[in-house]
Design a protein around this nucleic acid. Structure first.
Lengths: 190, 190
DNA sequence: ACTGTGGGAGAACGGCCGTTCTCGACGGCC
DNA sequence: GGCCGTCGAGAACGGCCGTTCTCCCACAGT
């Protein structure tokens, strides 16, 4: 049992590509098998149902997201810079040809009412991002109200970039965030 | 041919409820028949395929959206008030128990890659909203950059409210919009 | 009253879904 | 070398999908 053999990871990578790229319901388990090269029996040994596989894919996507914004924040000495780094990270992401919006928003829209596990995964992902932003806002000593406002800009940029197919929303969000942050820092929190 | 008999409207209303509430792929044509009380044969006489029905539902939803923001803007004498009315309209919408996010974002996430017609309907809806905001921003004499920023806040509020299940995002967006508008009006466009 | 037409209800169709089962080949241990 | 458990390949299953077809009744004109 020394190593997982990467089977789980190969399934997750293939399923993530397919689910994110084409929509979850539009992808059959046979396509996951074909793309991963892992037999159906083994997939079902690892994930007892498609729903569980979806949840696991979302979990891995959440980990990637956290790594991404953490890496973007590296080298930014002040909280203000780390907050703005979020939008730089978004711009790089939007420029990726396979970008298709926030996988959690997409999954929630598709399965939110039919799968409580998927709905909860999306809620927890967004809560976690809100906490991250709130932490930086607190570090900066700004009004806590600033945090959800900055998060809103990031969410809006993701959906707008997905539908329009451009990267501009990241720059618009960054510009708006700059104004909001500087206004909040001029009149700091009690 | 004096009147459409409302058949088309009944189909659209039932389909919209179901598609928006449960997701498009999760709803079968039989459920549309049952909910509308219109026989399948007549539905297919009116809409040649499910995809066309989806597009028609999105078109009616677009009309409702335009009416909603237009009505919210009534009685607001200045562009600034009409811009902020967008977020008041959103808050009222979020408070509706059946709110489940922006139907166009949901449809795009679910079918954007598989149905070009649905993708185009979503794009056109968002473009139209951008034009509306841009018009008000121009009326106000503010920097045109303000328009996409305000739109971002509205988009982010919709997805955040959908996933969190609260109405707060509307107030957060309104607060951020106030700051952005007033900052832009202090340093007006060339 | 008889025929013809149109529209209603629901069965039927081919196809794909998620999931499970069968079968045959392979490799480790005595 | 012979047995046994393991595992991969793909068929099989029940069920639902979007779409079409069949059948039957209710009513029009003469």
């Amino acid at each position: 049992m020394a190593e997982t053999d990467g089977v789980r990871e190969r399934i997750l990578a293939a399923a993530d590509d397919l689910f994110y790229g084409r929509g979850i319901q539009a992808v059959g388990m046979d396509q996951v098998r074909e793309a991963s090269g892992i037999p159906l029996k083994r997939i079902y040994a690892e994930f007892p149902s498609k729903e569980r596989l979806v949840v696991a894919v979302l979990a891995s996507r959440h980990a990637l997201w956290e790594q991404g914004i953490a890496r973007a924040a590296e080298g930014r000495p002040d909280p203000r810079g780390r907050l703005l780094a979020i939008y730089d990270f978004l711009e790089a992401w939007f420029a990726d040809g396979s970008f298709r919006g926030c996988g959690f928003i997409n999954a929630f829209g598709e399965l939110g009412t039919v799968s409580p596990l998927v709905a909860e995964a999306a809620r927890e992902h967004k809560r976690s991002f809100q906490r991250y932003v709130a932490g930086l806002v607190a570090e900066a000593g700004a009004d806590p109200e600033l945090a959800p406002q900055l998060a809103l800009l990031a969410e809006g940029a993701q959906t707008t970039a997905a539908i329009s197919g451009t990267t501009e929303p990241a720059r618009h969000a960054r510009g708006a965030a700059t104004v909001l942050i500087d206004a909040a820092l001029r009149r700091p929190a009690a």
